[in-house]
Design a protein around this nucleic acid. Sequence first.
DNA 1: CCCGATAAATGATCAGTGTTCAATTAAAAT
DNA 2: ATTTTAATTGAACACTGATCATTTATCGGG
Lengths: 204, 204
Amino acid sequence: MGRRSDHSRAELERLIIAEGHAHMAENGFARFSAREVAKRIGYSIGTLYNVFDNYDRLILAINTYSFQLWTDHLNARLDGVEGDRIRALVEGYFSFARENTHIWMAIYDHHLPPDVEMPEEFALQRGELTGIVVREVAVVLPDHAKDRATTLARSLIATVHGHCTFALNGTFALMGETEPMETALARVRESIAAAQRDSRIRTD
Amino acid sequence: MGRRSDHSRAELERLIIAEGHAHMAENGFARFSAREVAKRIGYSIGTLYNVFDNYDRLILAINTYSFQLWTDHLNARLDGVEGDRIRALVEGYFSFARENTHIWMAIYDHHLPPDVEMPEEFALQRGELTGIVVREVAVVLPDHAKDRATTLARSLIATVHGHCTFALNGTFALMGETEPMETALARVRESIAAAQRDSRIRTD
DNA sequence: CCCGATAAATGATCAGTGTTCAATTAAAAT
DNA sequence: ATTTTAATTGAACACTGATCATTTATCGGG
């Protein structure tokens, strides 16, 4: 058939991402299939490849959408929390991963081949999550240490990420660790406290 | 052909792992192929599937071998270091990952399906790496806190792992972080210092 | 109203994958 | 020499990502 008025290019793109996302949630990265996504949306593989011209760009779009949901999840968790916003952040990181295991893992299971590049718009969307953390870390740092917020935030994300990874991939279970989230939070607290102390020394 | 005297079962197994490991190092998890490994060792796919009766068990064997090399790498790095053994540990973690990117990533790219279980021997081999870290962490903790070494070590491995992951998968580059290893070491130092302080308080 | 022009959608086709298993082959036992 | 045993094979199957000539529908102009 030719042009079908029931779906514009943009709509089709969103449809593919939505259905691809659902398929990823159900099957995970290893069993994901572009053909299956095509079936789900009721189009042929050809059409899917017209919109996303290769597998990696499709996965990239789906994973970027996951980042969007993750960002929303974090913001929702933070909204209205007056006291311990750092805890809310760590809990939000973990709970999204726990409630969307396949989705979360797919983000890190996929590695861009060197010949495919990340669209800038995607990189920006992914960066928003970092932005949230940077802002919250900045709040708990003393004035004279605010400039360290970005560096520290990136590192704390990595710390929490490592704990979250081991929690979901079974490494912690194998090691005997039973409360990964609380452990991650403890590490984050220690590093923030150290940063607070550091700057106090320099200010006194 | 029937039984060929040139390779015993055990030898064949080692040959497959060795050649599979080399193939993994060259191509990475996504482009790894059992067929290609069969070609490399000069046997048919059938033979390969007689030794490792599915793909996951083959990858499991290759990745466990990687853990063995990683453990050796860490021990070599630690050997003779009198002063800063914690730094040696973190540097060893990173340098192995950096020098064996595909190999290291494959360990975490592969997820065991629920119906395939990890052989106990493999789990033990993988646990040795943790053992090294636990011992070294115990050394720097005061006597009254030695019992916390295991818990803390697991958490510190996760911390370093998170930083290493972001260093290799491009997340840190995207964020602007340029010295992931030193950053990871800083976090580790803070947490060890906190553990040392904690126990001092309880002992005073 | 019809007819090109344009754009969207198709699916057979290709090269590759993991996996299976009846058939083959070689060695060992009798 | 013959049977038994075990290792090895590779064609076959159902799938995958990717391609692209072909078909199909819509639209603009005569």
